[in-house]
Nucleic acid binder design. Structure first.
Lengths: 170, 170
DNA sequence: GTGAATTAGTTGGGTACAAAACCAATTTCG
DNA sequence: CGAAATTGGTTTTGTACCCAACTAATTCAC
């Protein structure tokens, strides 16, 4: 399975019935330099690669950020977690159920506000987080290697800027 | 429904039993400068914003790249399309069914190879693509504004590099 | 030329996600 | 106080996606 170059413009000048094999040049048109499109491609690829790494410890990549955030912010609520995580709170419900069932986190009703839970890691959760951190670091080193150390900081900053500013106002 | 800024400090200064409101500062730990995480956040945010734009023409953002690629490469096969698009071919099946049902594309069996389809846009599909292109350009201009014109090319190149290189070999 | 491998597309099973409707606890306000 | 609004979390519904297994058409090998 080869991965095709993914960016090249063909001429399509004879609109005869061309045959497009999977690895043939494809004309991306304006897509070729639109950020949103390549953001998606890059994210998908990166996600897949991380999933590969994380398969070793049997925990999907989405779980990782969740564990890390709980570990770093013991007592955090589900809503705060969802927001930090960039996902809807409803998305978290099944994930947290699963993590609790597997003994990685604790969910305790807060005394002061019995609607919300305080989330914390169990010992086993901490251990899992450590393992995952190793995977994640390997994955991120990999990304670093591709990006190049010079551009990394700038690149990261732009990503953050996008996440922070895109949906608001206009 | 307002979209919260995602990073803002509120003062809740009684630090006793810490309460993590949705907009409070959260410690991201090593996550804070890991590329994969921010790649996901940025992609999600961008996707949401585009979905917003595209809602006007009642076509989900995923459809856009599909239409564009068909428009630019008339006669392309589903497999080639999936590959250019960075998605599994099985993902495309229902999407193409839908686009066909709505009269935006044609799927014709190839004479030379009756396994595969040749995909082309109908007139109505071209019109839709034009509308979408306007939305997409607006969206992308928006991203450009955030990224800044200086860094845009570099940023794009890095994204492409990630998509192209991440999963392979090692 | 017939059987084995390959290829295009579909189907089925499963995960991840968001949006909207909902429930229960809590706060606000008349 | 007590009704209305708000907030934390869950449920339901629907979409997008991948993977593995499958069918049908085609090519390859001998």
């Amino acid at each position: 399975m080869k991965q095709e170059p993914l960016s090249r413009s063909a001429e399509t000048e004879a609109p005869s019935p061309r045959k497009y094999a999977a690895n043939e040049n494809v004309d991306f048109g304006p897509l070729a330099n639109w950020v949103g499109f390549h953001l998606r491609l890059a994210q998908t690829a990166s996600f897949q690669a991380f999933a590969q790494e994380a398969r070793a410890v049997d925990l999907s990549p989405g779980r990782f950020a969740t564990l890390m955030l709980i570990g770093r912010n013991p007592g955090i609520s589900q809503t705060a977690l969802a927001s930090a995580n960039g996902r809807d709170k409803s998305t978290l419900t099944p994930i947290l159920e699963d993590l609790e069932r597997r003994g990685f986190i604790l969910r305790e009703k807060m005394k002061t506000d019995r609607r919300s839970y305080q989330l914390t890691l169990t010992e086993s959760g901490k251990k899992m987080l450590d393992q995952l951190t190793v995977c994640a670091r390997r994955h991120d080193d990999n990304l670093d290697r591709i990006i190049g150390p010079k551009d990394r900081a700038k690149f990261l900053k732009i990503l953050q800027k996008i996440a922070a500013e895109i949906g608001r106002d206009e």
